[in-house]
């Protein structure tokens, strides 16, 4: 089976077969990163541009390493050092890059729908590396990959997402993907950070963290995204940590073999205690490793369809 789509904009329009294909391909490519010579010639002659309008460490590095391990040329553009500071529009920047004939453009942007503009205008494949509070499909794919690795399955698992759901693109993509793969989802956070109508998606909503964690197979902690909030909607970080920090006490409510996840960057002591972040349940660093494999799989599948 091949991935026949041109772009990866979100998991909302992915099928179960497509998700499975990406995860299976990632599983077979993961081994490359453990070799002493971590490079295969598969994408030699391909060019991948990472166009990042928002700060990023792990996602941008992950895409760059994924491209390089497949022998593609990877170019990183961060907007603080590009023509964007001279006032160039997104569309003009995109058309300029298109003229240099890359194969794939990876974009991160603070505005929902920005990758969709590129997908509509450019002939290149576009991968959404996070658009505003909308989607972050590669993060959700690597999360699902990690869950499948650690738990052997996704179907039937009870997954709880805790934190700033309203501003989280990680939550939206994970909800879309995990529901398709048969997981049960509970979202939990302060009432004013639970977006309206989210239960219509088919998730359970909780504001009490203890109830949300009870019996969970997977607990995914999300960062408070203070930078995306129009104004401070929660009284204080101290109060937030008191109600929604995953720690050694409340984790006992979850299943014994609970998997603790976090897309990073983590805020120690706010949404997750250091002991949990570094503890035996945590898969935070494995998520990062798996991210490279998942992104290699997507680069391979998107260009492979043409080769």
């Amino acid at each position: 089976m091949k991935l026949t789509r041109k772009d990866v904009l979100g998991l909302t329009d992915f099928t179960v077969d497509e998700i499975t294909l990406v995860l299976d391909t990632a599983a077979s490519l993961r081994e490359i990163s453990t070799r002493s010579i971590k490079k295969v010639p598969t994408l030699r002659g391909n060019t991948v541009i990472n166009l990042f309008y928002e700060p990023s460490t792990r996602t941008r590095t992950s895409f760059e390493i994924a491209a390089k391990r497949l022998s593609a040329d990877a170019i990183n553009i961060s907007t603080s050092t590009s023509s964007v500071v001279k006032g160039e529009t997104l569309i003009d920047t995109a058309k300029t890059l298109e003229s240099m004939n890359p194969d794939i453009i990876v974009i991160r942007h603070a505005c929902a729908g920005a990758p969709h503009i590129l997908a509509r205008l450019l002939k290149q494949s576009i991968i959404n590396a996070g658009d505003g509070a909308h989607e972050h499909p590669t993060q959700a794919l690597l999360d699902m990959f990690t869950i499948r690795e650690k738990k052997g399955r996704i179907k039937g698992l009870s997954v709880t997402l805790i934190g700033d759901i309203a501003h989280s693109r990680v939550a939206r993509s994970n909800i879309a993907g995990l529901l398709k793969m048969g997981a049960r989802i509970t979202v939990c956070g302060p009432a004013m950070l639970i977006p309206r109508g989210i239960s219509t998606l088919g998730v359970k909503v909780e504001t009490d963290m203890h109830r949300a964690i009870k019996g969970a197979d997977v607990v995914m902690m999300l960062r408070m995204q203070f930078e995306r909030q129009q104004r401070m909607v929660f009284p204080s970080i101290r109060e937030y940590a008191g109600l929604y920090c995953l720690n050694e006490d409340n984790i006992r409510l979850a299943e014994k073999d609970v998997l603790v996840m976090h897309p990073g960057p983590i805020n120690r002591g706010i949404e997750i205690s250091p002991g949990i972040a570094d503890g035996p349940h945590s898969s935070i660093l494995e998520q990062v490793s798996n991210g490279v494999a998942v992104r290699m799989a997507l680069l391979y599948l998107l260009t492979g369809g043409r080769q």
Partner: peptide, 17 residues
């Protein structure tokens, strides 16, 4: 709150304010 579309299920899905 500076919302750019109607608040509801669709804005929740699209991640637009």
């Amino acid at each position: 709150q500076g919302g750019v579309m109607n608040e509801g299920f669709v804005s929740t899905e699209l991640g637009l304010s």
